[in-house]
Simulated scan of single mutants.
Amino acid sequence: MKKIINDPATVVDEALDGVAAAHADLLTLHRNPTYVTRAGAPIAGKVALVSGGGSGHEPLHVGYVGEGMLDAAVPGAVFTSPTPDQILDATKAVDGGAGVLHIVKNYTGDVLNFEMAAELAEAEGLRVSAVVVDDDVAVQDSTWTAGRRGVGGTVLLEKIAGAAAARGDDLDAVTAIAQRVNSQVRSMGMALRACTVPHSGEPSFNLAEDEMEIGIGIHGEPGRETRKLAPADEIVEILLSTIVEDLPFASGDRTLLFVNGMGGTPEVELYLAYNSARKYLHGKGIEVERSLVGNYITALEMQGMSITLLKLDDEFVELWDAPVHTVALRRGL
C-alpha cells in the first residue's frame, strides 16, 4: 500500500484540519464531536441542509458545504457512518428556525444513525425531515446494503435542494423537491481497479489486468459481475442501457448527464466516456441539457467511473443553474 499519509488512524482528522485551514472563508470545523458547518451558520429563516457519511468519498460531503448547497456535513471514519451525536450537534448548529433537512445515502449505518439523531433533535424542539437517496440501479439482491445504494445522484440532489432552500422554500417544499430529484435520478458504476482502505492495506477486491467490475459501490464493494475489459463505448452502453431502462428514460426527455470519476481516473478518460454517453443518449432521442464531469463522489483511489442521469424539468434546470459557492462546486458567485 502506497499512500500519502502519516498514520492510518489519523487520516480523516488530519485531512479535515487541512480542509478547514485551506478554506477558512467557507467552512468551520467543529470537534468533540466532529462536523463541519458553512461560514456564518446558522442562517436565520433558511431551511438548513445536513448530510454526511463515511470519509473517502471526497469531495462529498464536506466539499459541498457552503452557499447554495449544504449547511453542514458530518464525516465518519473512512467508509464508516458518522455517529448520532455528531449528526445531532451538526443539526442543532445550523438550525436557523426554519427546520433542517437530512440528506442520507441508503446505507444501513447512515440511515439508522440519521434517524436516531433526528429523533433526538425533535425531542429538543427542532423540526427535522429526511430524504434517503437510493439511485444505484446496480443493486439487485445485495448483501452489502439494504436496498439500492445512494451514489452519484446525491451530488445532484444536494445542489438542487440546496438551491431551493437558498431561494426561501420552506421545509416541506425543500423536502418535496429532494424527494422528486431522487425519484428522477439513476446511477451505475464500474471499476478497473479497486481501492485500498488505509487501515486494511489490502484492495477491496481483485481484478486481473484484462478484467473490469460492473456495478461497484462507493465503499469499494464488488459489483454485480466481472467482465473482460471492453472499449469505452461498450462500457458506457452497459451502464447507460441499464440506467435508461430502469426509470425508464424515453425519447424526448431532457436530462442532466453526470460522468463521475471514482478517484483514480484521469479527466481525459472521463470526458471521453462523457462523449460516448452523449452519443448513446442522442441515439435514443434523449436530450442532454446540462452536464457535470469530474471526480465529485469518489471511493478513495478506485480507478473507474459512474454515470448518473437525471430527468430534468424547468424547475430542476432553474435550481441547478442557481448560484453555488462551495469548495468543490462554484457557479455564479
Rank of each mutant, 00 (worst) to 15 (best):
A9D: 15
A9K: 15
T10D: 09
V12M: 10
G18A: 02
G18V: 01
H23R: 12
D25L: 08
L26V: 00
Y35V: 03
V36W: 01
A41N: 02
H57I: 09
P59D: 08
H61W: 10
H61L: 10
V62R: 13
G66K: 09
T83C: 12
T91F: 10
D110M: 10
A117H: 04
A117P: 04
A130K: 15
D141E: 13
R148C: 13
G153V: 03
L156M: 13
A163E: 06
D172W: 06
A173I: 13
V174S: 05
I177Y: 02
S187Y: 03
S187E: 00
S187D: 05
A194E: 06
T196P: 01
P198M: 13
E202G: 03
S204I: 04
S204K: 11
N206R: 09
D210M: 06
E213F: 07
E213G: 08
G217P: 01
T226G: 10
K228Y: 06
L239P: 07
T242I: 01
L247P: 06
R254F: 11
T255Y: 06
T255H: 12
L256K: 11
V268A: 01
A273H: 00
A277M: 02
L281M: 05
H282S: 11
L309W: 02
D313W: 00
P323Q: 13
V327C: 15
V327P: 15
A328C: 15
R331A: 12
